[in-house]
Design a protein around this nucleic acid. Structure first.
Length: 657
RNA sequence: GCCCAGAUAGCUCAGUCGGCAGAGCAUCUCACUCGUAAUGAGAAGGUCGCGGGUUCGAUUCCCGCUCUGGGCUCCA
């Protein structure tokens, strides 16, 4: 009997009977591996377990508890979903169903315009469990184009994918469905259910089962707004019940730190419907936090060589004609107001007005770099379906800087800008950063290639110098210049894009901005846009979620709460409050109308950093009882010691979430 | 803008197969004055999101709108 030898990931070799498959390999290694195996990587490409191995191949087994394994089982679960839907809704057309982060989805076109509602999910889910229980095999075969078109004759979306793939017009979404090459691969589960797919898949549906259908949604075919609206079902799937439960638990935790929920619970701000969609009012407790954020931002900008400016909320249409906003972003602007002889628009950006300030008189190279800063409130008409709490809002305030500099200054200016941005972000407790460098889209840009190259190099050099991990997004820049976007990762691992540093070769030209150089000649400055919070509102929302509402002491609306044990201790409590207020702390006191335990509980739910309880002993000894957030109760703490401790906490550079 | 789901007391939510609307928390009053995560009693609180239709009667059924949530698209 002839044999073949394969290489394993650890470098060892293994001899198998000729004709052996990846499944045989797994079995030869161990029964636990055989059970956990879902697919294999053979010579670098993923394949099914039952693929025959060739002599000398390098083979790795994919198990369910790896990222690759979860990807396979999610994709396979999507097929089960499609089969369940086609059985429950005869005539349903299915389009694509990829694995995504934490789960999968599948898009359907139901007969007669029928739509899914959430109540359909349990029936579909039950049908899926039947299919899992039936332990149907996933049988791969490869067919020619003609055969494929015949197989999917009643599935127009599948036919479209086949045609696009074979005509070479496929994009990433199609490639997930079918591999490239001549033959088209399909996976059959039953006599009647077969799906176009590149694979690999689990050997049989019995390997699946730890899934949950999460929600239904509309989704456009081919992700194009012009395409028909399909019905999408989202699900999640995991390698074990424990992993599924853990995922569901994580979702529940994320929901608990939803900034919209925390904003209501802590009385920070609200979105009264009387005001209109996407518009917020800030209540006193939210406003104080916002003010602290803004004060800190102003202080840093003042020390960072910025000049403060203020500009109005409205501008004549001519200004936005000059800036180009009316040409490019009219749909995203609030509608115009007509008055006197002109037409006015609420501003969607501050930069045109800052350009007017620069252009207001002749400028010398000695004034550059000129750094203008404004907390400027802008209004954008975000479409109704896109609004989302503070994260997507129609009126918001940018911490907006525009820096005008010479070409020679570009490099240093960008490097110091990046330092500045990172230092401010760290103060707010973010520690984990990544950046994206977006480069020229050759199809759409203004300015000459030399300046694009120079600016892109300057951005890259700044990232390298700072040592910030970054990805290059080729062709992703706006038409007017390359940019750096900075993402932060929050306490539960979610990424938020916050700060941005953008070069602009367009506005200086449109506003005909000039300075006189040392050579007495006129030159055009380069403009940089820089937002750090981006939107103050959104940044506030991200902070709330990052800290789950427990803002660091320097930002907490109430830093210290005094609780007199009984009415007899109120005078003493008042004297402690006065002392702490003299030290500049934000303090309040809750009188002894409720029991102490109740007042402690309320303070804890409000996530106040320090709760001070004062009773007989404290009155006698000038002490306080300290109940710190997340710490143990301490009795008989001297007031001076407490003051020093809070002061240290407020000034701490290292803030933990 | 499109698909799905919502909107009932300040908050969280129950309920009415079409017949005067309910709980917990919060609020107010009274009692309790208490040493570290919910004291007790009472009161008050609602055009059941807005507008139209069907009906003897609509918070409930139908239509439209507004707002909210989840997606798609978009995001200077």
């Amino acid at each position: 009997m002839s044999t073949l030898t394969v290489k394993l990931p650890d470098g060892s070799a293994r001899e198998l009977a000729s004709g052996s498959t990846a499944a045989d390999l797994a079995a030869s290694i161990g029964s636990r591996l055989a059970k956990a195996a879902l697919a294999a990587v053979v010579d670098g490409s993923e394949s099914d377990l039952n693929v025959p191995l060739s002599d000398g191949a390098t083979v790795a087994i994919i198990t369910a508890d790896s990222d690759a394994g979860r990807h396979v089982l999610r994709h396979s679960t999507a097929h089960v979903l499609a089969q369940a839907v086609t059985r429950l809704f005869p005539g349903a057309k299915f389009s694509i169903g990829p694995a995504i982060e934490d789960g999968f989805y599948y898009d359907f076109d139901l007969p007669a315009g029928r739509t899914f509602s959430e109540t359909d999910l349990s029936a579909i889910s039950d049908k899926m469990r039947e299919i899992v229980k039936a332990d149907q095999p996933f049988v791969r075969s490869e067919v020619g184009v003609g055969e494929a078109l015949r197989l999917f004759a009643d599935q127009p979306y599948k036919c479209e994918i086949i045609e696009r793939v074979t005509s070479g017009a496929a994009d990433g979404a199609d490639a997930g469905e079918v591999g490239g090459g001549e033959a088209i691969s399909v996976y059959r589960n039953t006599e009647s259910f077969v799906d176009l797919c590149r694979g690999p898949h689990v050997p049989s549906t019995g390997k699946l089962g730890h899934f949950a259908l999460m929600k239904v949604a509309g989704a456009h075919w081919r992700s194009s707004e012009k395409g028909p609206m399909l019905q999408r079902i989202y699900g999640t799937a995991w390698e074990s019940k424990a992993a599924l439960d853990e995922h569901l638990h994580r979702l529940a935790e994320a929901e608990k730190r939803d900034h919209r929920r925390l904003a209501v619970e802590q009385d920070l701000l609200s979105f009264p419907s009387e005001l209109g969609g996407g518009l917020a009012v800030w209540h006193p407790k939210g406003a104080i936090v916002r003010k602290l954020m803004e004060d800190y931002s102003r202080e840093r900008h003042q020390n960072g060589g910025y000049q403060f400016v203020f500009t109005p909320h409205l501008a004549n249409a001519n200004l936005f004609q000059t800036s180009g906003h009316l040409d490019f972003y009219r749909d995203g602007m609030y509608p115009p107001m007509e008055m006197d002889n002109g037409v006015y628009y609420p501003k969607p950006m501050n930069c045109p007005m800052h350009c007017l300030i620069f252009a207001g008189r002749g400028r010398s190279y000695r004034e550059l770099p000129m750094r203008l800063f404004e907390l400027g409130t802008v209004y954008r008409y975000e479409r109704a379906g896109t609004l989302h709490g503070l994260m997507r809002i129609r009126g918001f305030t940018q911490d907006d800087s525009h820096i005008y500099c010479t070409e020679d200054q570009l490099q240093d200016e960008i490097a110091s800008l990046l330092d500045f941005v990172m230092s401010v972000l760290r103060r707010f407790g973010f520690k984990d950063f990544t950046a994206n460098l977006s480069t020229k889209d050759p199809a759409k840009y203004v300015g000459d290639d030399a300046i694009w190259g120079k600016a892109t190099d300057a951005l890259r050099a700044a990232l390298e110098k700072y040592g910030l991990e970054y990805k290059i997004k080729e062709g992703d820049a706006a038409f007017y210049g390359p940019k750096i976007d900075i993402d932060v990762r929050d306490a539960i691992g979610r990424k938020w894009q916050l700060s941005t540093i953008q070069c602009d070769f367009n506005l200086p030209q449109r506003f005909d901005l000039e300075y006189v150089g040392a050579d007495s000649q006129r030159h055009r400055p380069i403009m940089l846009h820089r937002a750090l919070f981006g939107s103050v509102e959104r940044f506030f929302g991200v902070l709330l979620e990052h800290y789950a509402g427990a803002l660091p002491t320097w930002l907490a609306p109430v830093q210290v709460r005094l609780l007199p044990v009984a009415s007899a201790h109120e005078a003493y409590a008042a004297s402690v409050v006065a002392r702490l207020q003299r030290e500049g702390f934000r303090v309040d006191v809750i009188h002894a109308d409720d029991q102490l335990g109740k007042r402690i509980r309320n303070a804890k739910m409000e996530k106040i950093p320090y709760v001070l309880v004062v009773g007989d002993d404290d009155v006698a000894n000038s002490t306080v009882g300290v109940n710190p957030r997340g710490g143990e109760v301490e009795r008989d703490v001297r007031i001076d010691d407490f003051v020093a401790r809070v002061a240290a906490d407020v000034n701490a550079d290292d803030v933990d979430a």
